[in-house]
Design a protein around this nucleic acid. Structure first.
Length: 514
RNA sequence: GCGCCUGUAGCUCAGCUGGAUAGAGCAACGGACUUCUAAUCCGUAGGUCGGGGGUUCGACUCCCUCCGGGCGCACCA
């Protein structure tokens, strides 16, 4: 990773010059907003000012001199305490040429990750909210594969409990020509299910699976809540909590001392009517996750469940207090609102009037669906305008990016095999901007992976597409001399491969032609 | 009332563990196609970063407070 190798260089120089041992995290490599300053920059001189008791300007000056005398990779200059790093052309080109052939060793986020997502009730079709968790989880999975993490994916099927009973009642009511219970399920699909012989829950799961398939989402395990009830796992967690004195009886109910682990209050496990709470069953599920040996447990939940996080967190903590550290992370995806030409599309689960994820995919396609559900930080709500997502013009970033890829493909097809360029290089500003952006690919991949933020990758796609379009307008290929032509064709080839990789990691196709 | 998320250009959003003149896309306005796809590019305009305090050499970024928006606060799932 390019930023990393620059970091290492600076670490070494600081060590040689000042006998200071810094760690990776002490150094920040940035890309200057004003690109004329350099390809990269660092503010390390400001950070060293205090410990060294020197002015940042002097520190920066000395470091630059040291790096310049020492490195055949970088040429540095110091401006107002910042160190601006300019990659030497030959080094830049060599780095770029080998980029995709030499994938770096990525760090391990943990020994073994479990990523649980979607986990929908099998009582109806998936909606766009599910789509967001699905797209997010799938992108993370691909990033985990790409960065060679050890991990499993899983979805939890809530195929037991009150909602399921209500669901069956609703379907049966229609079958028997009765009125669906007030708090039951009223969607049109209930009538379809009633006219079929198949088990409604199985039918819905099958339907959900097909929808997820379209988005490229699959799971190692479909974990059934029902199977938990049928196993001894609920008793296991109960006896664990009892023997650890983490539960107690009060008001005829059994409680978990979740407040001892940071929750606002204690939570009921077994109700006074002796039935289990949903929480108990979920606790059993997470107990099982820990017992299966995962040490990084990631759940993707909708914002409407965020109040539930502390109690599950409390559970995990109580299970693992005597064991090695287990990380537990709940990714809260904020809600998705659908719009059409600026008008909110009403969604009511109650009356069953809602646009399903399938309908959205039918209308705007997989690529746009993936893009629009992925492109924002999961902390932000998404206002999703269907008409905008459908437009095949510049208003729609999906097309902007895909067009860049198609443009590269047709451009390359105009020329015979691209021969490697290994001469002495020099760059125009547009070439350099494109090339340095290409170098950042693995840095972005790692950033997106470690921060569990695939949206950074969609941003990168747009940036790369922009840099390419600019290059395309300013750097003709056909009309340039042999050397330049070969260099530019190589650059386009590298860019195309990187953009394709980046798009595919986002679950978006990279068309050859548009 | 309490908790989580959020408030940056007309719109949709970035802004990396505080750092250089706050960025991008779209929309607006003005340009560029006999030349590798104009689904593109170039230029112009547009911001007291919700308000107010504080910490700092330096704050969109950290702390406090107030205001607005979303979501949640069950012996429901």
């Amino acid at each position: 990773m390019i930023k990393n190798s620059i970091k290492q260089c600076i670490l070494r120089c600081v060590q040689e010059l000042h006998q200071l041992e810094l760690s990776d995290s002490d150094i920040v490599i940035e890309i200057p907003k004003n690109r004329e300053l350099g390809d990269f920059s660092t503010n390390i001189a400001f950070r060293l000012a205090k410990p060294l008791k020197q002015s940042p300007l002097i520190i920066a000056e000395a470091l630059c001199t040291h790096i310049n005398s020492d490195s055949d990779r970088y040429s540095c200059s110091s401006v107002k305490g910042f160190i601006n790093i300019h990659l030497l052309d030959d080094y830049l080109w060599q780095y770029l040429s080998e980029l995709l052939q030499t994938k770096p060793e990525f760090s391990k986020l943990s020994e073994s990750i479990l990523l649980e997502y979607v986990s929908a009730n099998p009582t109806g079709p998936l909606h766009v909210g599910h789509g967001r968790w699905a797209v997010l989880g799938a992108a993370l999975s691909r990033l985990f594969v790409f960065t060679q993490q050890r991990f499993k994916t899983e979805t939890y099927i809530n195929d037991a409990g009150n909602q399921i009973s209500l669901f069956y009642e609703s379907v049966n009511a229609v079958k028997e020509g009765k009125v669906i219970p007030e708090n039951g399920y009223h969607g049109h699909y209930i009538h379809d299910l009633a006219s079929s012989e198949a088990d409604p829950v199985k039918a819905i799961i099958q339907q959900q699976r097909q929808t997820l398939d379209r988005l490229g989402v699959s799971f190692d395990t479909w974990y059934s809540e029902k199977s938990l009830h049928e196993s001894s796992k609920i008793d296991d967690v109960l006896s664990f909590l009892k023997t650890s004195s983490l539960s107690y009886e009060s008001d005829d109910a059994l409680w978990f001392k979740s407040s001892s682990f940071g929750d606002d209050k204690d939570r009921v496990l077994i109700k006074s009517d002796h039935s289990y709470t949903y929480f108990l069953v979920d606790l059993a599920y997470h107990f099982d996750k820990v017992n299966r040996g995962f040490d990084y447990i990631i759940n993707i939940w909708g914002a409407d469940h965020h109040g539930y996080v502390p109690r599950v967190q409390a559970g995990i903590q109580s299970f693992t207090s005597e064991k090695k550290d287990v990380q537990f992370k709940v990714l809260i995806g904020q809600l998705v609102s659908l719009f059409r030409n600026g008008e909110a599309v009403r969604m009511s689960k109650r009356t069953g009037e809602m646009i399903t994820l399938d309908e959205v995919i039918d209308e705007i396609g997989v690529d746009a669906t993936s893009y629009f559900l992925l492109h924002k930080s999961s902390d932000s709500t998404i206002d999703f305008d269907l008409e905008l997502a459908k437009q095949k013009n510049a208003e729609n970033p999906v097309f902007y990016v895909q067009y860049a890829h198609a443009r590269m493909c047709t451009l390359l097809s105009k020329f015979d095999d691209v021969k490697p360029f290994d001469g002495k290089v020099s760059f125009t500003p547009e070439e350099r901007a494109l090339a340095t952006l290409c170098l950042l690919f693995y840095d972005v991949v790692w950033d997106a992976t470690s921060s569990l933020s695939p949206y950074k990758l969609t941003q990168y796609c747009v940036q790369l597409a922009k840099a390419f379009h600019v290059f395309y307008e300013h750097c003709p290929i056909k009309s340039s001399d042999d050397e330049t032509q070969r260099k530019r064709l190589c650059l386009v080839t590298f860019t195309k491969d990187i953009l394709k990789n980046a798009l595919n990691l986002c679950g978006i196709s990279a068309p050859q032609r548009m």
